[in-house]
Design a protein around this nucleic acid. Sequence first.
DNA 1: AAACGGATGGGCT
DNA 2: GCCCATCCGTTTG
Length: 184
Amino acid sequence: MAKKLLGTFLVHESPEGRTAGRIVETEAYLSDDPACHAARGETSRNRVMFGPPGHAYIYFIYGMYHCFNVVTAPPGKGEAVLIRSLEPVEGLELMQKRRLSHRQRKHQHISEKELCNGPGKLVIAMGIHRSLNGVNLERGDLRLQFPKEYFQFKIKTTTRIGIREGAELPLRFYIRDNPYISKT
DNA sequence: AAACGGATGGGCT
DNA sequence: GCCCATCCGTTTG
């Protein structure tokens, strides 16, 4: 599913406006994987990971940021895919405004490449709020939209970023040669 | 260009 | 009390 989500569009219709991006980098977190929040059973934080697939799992990290995931396993299993980078497609000015408001030096410009090239960054740029934790991504303001036309790309597989346990597992995927990746 | 440390607070043992 | 699926501004080479 982490590979299958590459190329898919993430769309958010918010009161401020509409933003959209193409998913270009993902990581899988599996039920038997020590880096997975769900690996040691259900808690109040990871509850939606054990719910139906196609819903949003959003969690708070490092005291300042949120990460957005898609639940990808049948109820009870506890698996999700972290969305790590988007290629900005729509609402770039709104993305810019949201990103700048979270910075100290607010006059500086953020390049298109850096708008959504990281899990914390894309959550800010897309205006994804913690209140969207658990929503169905098939319909609603925050949704996944599968592309109407297929286009070819090659998938690069690497190890995941920012974890200790399970760091050797090949569970990070990105579109090869895409310029909007967090780290190559 | 890379390396480093501070910010900042919820989750879990 | 330690850990953490991160980002940013500053320092160093």
